[in-house]
Computed example of a mutant assay.
Amino acid sequence: MTMQQTITAGSTDQNKGKPTLASIADDKAMLRAARDLTRDLGAARGAIYWTDMLASAIIGYAALAGAILLHQPLLVVALGLVAALALYRALLFIHEISHIHRDALPGFRLGWNLLVGIPLLTPSFMYEGVHTLHHARTRYGTREDPEYLPLALMKPWSLPLFVAIALLAPIALLFRFAVLVPLGAIIPAVRRLTWTRFSALSINPDFRRRPAEGELKPRVLYQEALGMIWAWLLLASTQMIGWRPLLIALAVVSVTAVLNQLRTLVAHLWENEGEPMTVTAQFLDSVNVPPPGVVAEIWAPVGLRYHALHHLMPSMPYHDLPEAHRRLARELGDGSTYFGANHPGMATLVARIARSTMRPRQP
């Protein structure tokens, strides 16, 4: 089935005269190909996960240490940028942790939390049990989706605000763990507020997190306790070695947060108005930025350059997504629905979303 056939298979918005995302029917041939062509893929390889994560963390922390210890401005900026990019890659393994089977990589979640999640005050509980809601077929793109906002349908000023607010992320995380967690241990109302409003990596301001259950509950306890202790140690260090090291670290994490927010901005087209969508519609509202370009591997690492494909196969390990993409592209061919989710790069996507915010809206 071609892209045009997929769209016209659904109904159209009678007011605008063009198909809406919610009206797009499923391309069964594409869904069947995604299943049949990737049967031999899908096993998470521990050697790849551990090597990639450890190398990213080591490079990131080494560059951060250099930025703190050296005092030449250009070297500080250069090393800070290297640290931000490397730690960004290490941090994005939180996405894989939210999807991989609990028995697939023994010890990886714990190791990642101790090496990356806790030091960056972004432990895995802030994504586990939240991100999977984004993949629920009946929730994606609706008001119950923690990771969706119709950004393309909002005001033009919403886009720079969406990106700029990420600058405050490290300060907000430090405040959460150093102040709100210990206060919450004493005051139940603070604890409830912290959990429902400030314990999820979400972009939907209406999202309220439900209480942790099952295996997640004890993980939350130890991760919050370690996060609180680490936040106190960071603040206490300023009394012994001054504020410069912490401020540089916060600046590096701010760059990482802004880069992640830019990636989030172009992870979808954000064109749904809150209606439930088919799997194919969700796929077309998501973004692939496949090769030959290499820059996308920097701003969308750990498989996230294949974000649309990820929405077709959420449990596929990141290291198998390039091969899955090659097989589907070869089998389905140009002009197919599959190619409708492929885009050339971040600049093109930002421009598309920005243009969409400037279009006049009908009541």
Rank of each mutant, 00 (worst) to 15 (best):
R305A: 15
G46E: 06
R197L: 11
A329F: 03
V266L: 06
D320Q: 09
G242N: 10
A249C: 12
A296G: 14
F108W: 02
D285N: 15
L173G: 01
L75H: 12
H311A: 07
Q4N: 10
A152Y: 00
A249K: 03
P211W: 04
W157C: 09
M1Y: 09
L133P: 00
L21M: 15
I203F: 07
F162W: 07
R352A: 13
K28W: 13
F93H: 15
W195G: 00
L180Y: 03
G184N: 04
L259S: 05
A257M: 06
G111T: 14
S286C: 11
V295A: 13
L21N: 00
H135P: 06
E128K: 10
L265F: 06
Y127Q: 15
D285E: 11
I59C: 13
T38Y: 00
M1G: 03
L110I: 13
L110F: 13
G333H: 07
A9E: 13
P73G: 09
L309K: 05
N113M: 10
Q239P: 01
N342F: 00
T194H: 08
L87Y: 03
R137I: 07
A78T: 12
R219P: 00
A341N: 08
F207A: 10
A347V: 15
I248T: 10
T38V: 03
T12K: 13
Q282L: 02
P146L: 07
D285W: 05
R35P: 00
N342C: 15
G242V: 06
K18A: 14
P73S: 09
L328K: 04
H99N: 04
I7T: 04
G303Q: 06
Y148H: 09
P322G: 12
Y140E: 07
I118L: 11
A172L: 15
E323M: 12
G335L: 14
L121I: 03
L133S: 01
E147S: 08
R359L: 12
